[in-house]
Design a protein around this nucleic acid. Structure first.
Length: 105
DNA sequence: CATTTGACTGCGT
DNA sequence: AACGCAGCCAAAT
């Protein structure tokens, strides 16, 4: 089995993300907090590297926006899962209704 | 072992 | 409201 060493934080993040129910989301900061850390960026770093194997679109920015540069891909998933979205006039074209679907562990 | 890097955040201007 | 800036944290180089 590949990589049998040195995954503490990385695996922990992936586990938390895997726990987020469909149709709900958590902010980077939330995920970090659930791990007892304040490293929102560190979480983003993990997602950038190993996010491919999890439901990365369920981890969003504090402002209710999808991960930077992934708005279009994420949108498909939100619509498929019934995640409450809200129209916006920015590049993303939409915002996630955090008040309605923010997940609490 | 020191530095750089990011799918972040909140506050100030 | 847009923009910049500093604080933050762990992995990668």
């Amino acid at each position: 089995m590949p990589q049998q060493h040195a995954e503490g934080f990385v695996e922990a993040v992936l586990v938390v993300v895997a726990d987020i129910p469909p149709g709900q989301v958590a902010t980077y900061g939330d995920v970090a907090a659930l791990l007892g850390s304040r490293g929102a960026r560190a979480v983003g770093q993990v997602m950038a590297r190993s996010g491919a194997e999890v439901a990365w679109w369920r981890v969003v920015r504090a402002g209710g926006r999808a991960p930077a540069g992934h708005a279009e891909r994420a949108r498909v998933h939100y619509e498929a899962e019934g995640t409450p979205l809200r129209p916006a006039n920015d590049d993303d074209g939409y915002r996630i209704d955090l008040a309605a679907c923010r997940w609490r562990g």
